[in-house]
Design a binder for these strands. Structure first.
Length: 453
RNA sequence: GUGGUAGUAGCUCAGUUGGUUAGAGCACCGGAUUGUGAUUCCGGGGGUCGCGGGUUCAAGUCCCGUCUAUCACCCCA
């Protein structure tokens, strides 16, 4: 027996149908928002990833040396490859660029529920627009990528935050650069850390002032709208310079929220500065989407996450290009949609099932099968000769709308009997008109007949 | 990478203090059924009890290791 590699999945037809449905809806949502699809290689040079994330990343990659001696890795994410593509052509492409991709990503880490070694992800990114209009557009796309399946503002929420505001606030307390990023790292984990441990981790940055800082953070985490943000942060601006910067940033908040509200997305947005995203390269607005339980509480793993990363492309050696993007994984999304009853059972049904007699009748019946299929009608029939009773059972199980009966009686008269498997109605047609007649029956059905002959 | 829990048929599970040839339901296949389907009845295939070792007269059951799954850490690109 061969087992699958840990963290990888087989997709049986039913699973595959679900997955394709997911991809189709995602793809429609992205296109509908004006995004263009692109693609990148599955295998990339190892240093593409180590340059962005540091050498530690290797422990989490599927990497090996290829036969040409190159160090390579299966892509764990799209961003570096995307940065390469964008960086190479950004000067000559009309801005803004709005690109999306749905592809498999790999990471070598201990698999857990909702977190495998291979997963598919929808990625949408906008390049070349530094203003909050791009953030609004991206968040709108992320919302649509979930909402298109059926969930509403009662089922999920976008927690919207801002690393710029955090950095300005930390600057006002005298922390910048690495130290500020360190503090953000603690804030990122605050939801999962007991108070004591959180305070401990803040000690290197705030010493005895950690209690005061923690109290301020708790206040910040409770802010839920732009006016509250303004009141708090302007109230804590220590000088004119920072005050001006904070005012500027608050104006961008207002624009972002107004754009989203104008698109009817207000109910999906929750201002929540508790989200900072673990990654150091995020620069401005960041968000994560969480499912809501019936009582309105947040639960589980993030369904999607994203934000602005204005310096990443430049850092990778390409022209400085403002960018904002999000990713949404298939594993958590499928779980969520199933839980909310938004993934119907995908059963692939034929349109017609052809019941065949033996000998000459089978030959004529197969000719009809060929004609129907050429006309684009999904047609199924038994691959070997079996009894009529059995064939009708198969027809019923197949889920086909119509059964066509081509037995010896019909064959002798160049006829086909057509039975509506839903109503039980049955009529005879001439084989020469079969395709047109069956198209009509598929649309309109056949009324029940009292005494089928 | 660290620690907790679990693993019996395709699926859900039963299996007594260790004791004969490991069972059930569902699913699948065949028949009743060679001209009319979702019901019913009968039958069948399927298991190295995750894998390897140990204790024992005897192991699905106890012990050790290992793999896999899952949970909590680490991490989350």
């Amino acid at each position: 027996m061969h087992e699958r590699l840990p963290g990888f999945r087989d997709f049986y037809p039913e699973d595959c149908a679900k997955r394709n449905f997911l991809f189709r809806v995602w793809s429609d949502a992205a296109r509908c928002h004006g995004f263009h699809e692109y693609d990148i290689p599955t295998l990339e040079p190892l240093n593409l990833f180590t340059e962005k994330s540091g050498p530690e990343i290797v422990s989490q990659l599927f990497n090996f040396t290829d036969k040409g001696g190159r160090e390579v890795a299966l892509r764990p994410e799209l961003t570096p490859s995307l940065a390469r593509m964008v960086g190479a052509k950004v000067a000559s492409l009309p801005k803004p660029l709005k690109w999306f991709n749905i592809a498999e990503n790999f990471r070598y880490e201990k698999p857990q529920e909702g977190r495998l070694r291979s997963h598919y992800q929808l990625n949408c990114d906008i390049f070349g627009e530094p203003g909050p209009g791009a953030d609004a557009e991206l968040i709108a796309t992320a919302i649509a990528s979930i909402r298109s399946f059926g969930p509403t503002e009662k089922d999920f929420v976008v927690r919207l935050s801002d690393r710029t505001l955090w950095m300005l606030f930390l600057a006002s307390l005298g922390h910048e650069g690495e130290a500020a990023l360190g503090v953000l790292g603690v804030i990122d984990k605050l939801e999962r850390l007991p108070r004591e441990q959180a305070l401990e981790r803040l000690t290197p940055y705030f010493g005895d002032a950690r209690e005061d800082f923690f109290a301020q953070v708790e206040t910040i985490l409770s802010l839920r709208d732009a006016p509250s943000l303004a009141t708090f942060f302007l109230g804590h601006a220590p000088n004119a310079d920072l005050r001006a910067k904070i005012e500027g940033r608050l104006a961008e908040w207002t624009t972002l929220l107004e754009n989203l509200r104008a698109m009817g997305l207000g109910p999906f947005i929750r201002v929540d500065l508790g989200i900072v995203r673990g990654l150091a390269y995020y620069t401005g607005f960041v968000f994560e989407i969480f499912k809501l339980d019936a009582d309105g509480t947040l639960s589980g793993r993030a369904l999607a996450g994203g934000g602005r990363y204005d310096h990443l492309i430049g850092k990778l050696g390409f022209p400085e290009t403002p960018a904002v993007g999000f990713g949404m994984g298939d594993v958590t999304m499928t779980q969520f949609l199933e839980e909310r009853g938004c993934l119907p059972k995908m059963i692939e049904k034929p349109d017609v099932f052809v019941v065949l007699g033996g000998g000459e009748a089978r030959t004529l019946g197969l000719a009809a099968v060929g004609a129907l299929r050429s006309a684009g009608i999904r047609t199924e029939y038994p691959l070997r000769e079996v009894g009529f009773g059995k064939q009708f059972r198969l027809a019923g199980q197949s889920g086909a709308r119509l059964a066509l009966i081509v037995g010896e009686n019909e064959a002798a008269r160049h006829q086909i009997r057509v039975k509506d498997l839903t109503s039980g109605g049955e009529v005879g047609i001439f084989a020469s008109h079969a395709v047109e007649a069956i198209r009509a029956f598929l649309d309109e059905g056949i009324p029940p007949t009292d005494s089928p002959s």
